[in-house]
Simulated assay, not measured.
Amino acid sequence: MKITYTLLALSVVFLACQGRKSAPSEVAMTDTARLLAVASDDDIAEEMEQSNDLSADFLIVPGQQVGPIRADASEASLIRLLGKANVVHDTIYTVEGQFDIGTTLYRNTADQAHVLWRDKKRFARPETVLIRPARDENNDLLPGAAGKTVQWATADGLRVGSTLRDVEAINGKPFNLYGFEWDYGGQSSGWRGGSLETKTGKTFIGATFGFDHDVPDNQQAFFEAVMGDIEFLSNNTALQQLNPTVQTLSISFQ
């Protein structure tokens, strides 16, 4: 039976352009009301207010915000907000055997997120945030503040764990993604004018799809039909049958 995890594939290239292990830390939550009060963008505040079931501490607004991470954030500012236990200077795997120096939030928990910076000297001005939950040897989520649940999500519900069909519904139409079993396997490669891109056609969020556990034997034929360095439409029959889930998210900033 094929192991089909795709946890290390990233959307850094598509959006254009862990080092030491430690015990899970206690997550210090920021104050939602305080974040709303300092919001510099009315649209962000409105998204927070409308998302009644989602803490602003983990709200994703593509291009503008990933929880407390704003376009003007730095590692130092995140330490002030979240505490040193929850903000770690780290070596982060990117793609194809490459690593970068950045910052990890909530390390070794379901809410683990990596920040890659534009200013690599001051570790400031985020370029990309990778929502990459920590998992055990069985590919099960390690618990965080909310247990084995990834809290990061957009206001319309896109999150780690969303199914391919869920994402189609959020996007409002089928989208493109790469086949499985290579470095970029399962990555979204274009939202085709759906709601997950801006009105001007820019994209600030990408998703990598895969499977929490092995593909069952009775679905192997479907899996083999969507392998390799090939783009597929999400409404492909085999993909619909497999209905993979979002394993990681990648958010860039305007």
Rank of each mutant, 00 (worst) to 15 (best):
M1L: 01
M1E: 01
K2D: 13
T4S: 14
L7Y: 06
L7T: 06
L10D: 07
V13I: 15
V13L: 14
A16V: 04
G19K: 00
G19C: 00
R20T: 10
E26T: 13
V27R: 09
M29Y: 09
T30C: 01
D31A: 05
R34K: 13
S40C: 09
D41P: 05
I44A: 00
A45I: 06
A45L: 07
E46G: 03
E46Q: 06
N52A: 07
L54D: 02
A56Y: 07
D57I: 06
I60Q: 01
I60F: 01
V61L: 09
V61F: 09
P62H: 06
G67P: 00
P68K: 12
R70P: 06
D72M: 00
A73D: 14
E75G: 10
E75D: 11
L78K: 07
L78M: 13
R80Q: 13
L81N: 01
G83I: 14
K84S: 08
K84N: 05
A85Q: 12
V88C: 03
I92G: 11
E96Y: 04
G97H: 02
G97C: 04
Q98K: 14
F99I: 08
F99Q: 03
D100M: 03
L105S: 06
Y106S: 08
N108D: 06
T109P: 06
D111R: 08
H114K: 12
V115I: 10
L116C: 01
W117K: 03
R118Y: 02
K120P: 02
A124H: 11
R125Y: 05
R125P: 00
P126R: 10
E127P: 05
E127A: 09
I131N: 03
R132A: 12
N138S: 07
N139L: 11
N139S: 11
D140E: 08
D140W: 07
L142M: 07
A145V: 10
A146H: 04
K148Y: 07
A153S: 11
T154R: 05
D156W: 15
G157R: 10
R159K: 15
V160H: 10
R165E: 14
V167M: 06
E168F: 03
I170Y: 07
G172Y: 11
G172R: 15
K173V: 08
P174I: 00
P174D: 02
F175S: 02
F175C: 05
N176H: 13
N176F: 15
L177C: 02
L177D: 04
G179I: 06
F180Y: 04
Y184P: 05
G186S: 07
G186A: 03
G186K: 02
Q187S: 14
Q187N: 14
S188R: 03
S188L: 08
S189G: 04
W191R: 10
G193E: 02
G194V: 04
E197A: 10
T198Q: 01
T198R: 00
K199M: 12
A207M: 00
T208F: 04
G210Y: 02
F211R: 14
F211H: 15
D212C: 10
D214H: 15
V215Y: 12
V215H: 11
P216F: 14
D217Y: 13
Q220C: 13
A221E: 09
F222K: 13
E224I: 01
M227R: 08
M227I: 01
D229E: 00
I230S: 09
L233S: 09
L233G: 04
A238S: 14
L239C: 08
L239S: 05
Q240H: 13
Q240E: 12
Q241A: 13
N243D: 12
V246Y: 15
Q247Y: 14
T248L: 09
S250D: 11
S250Y: 08
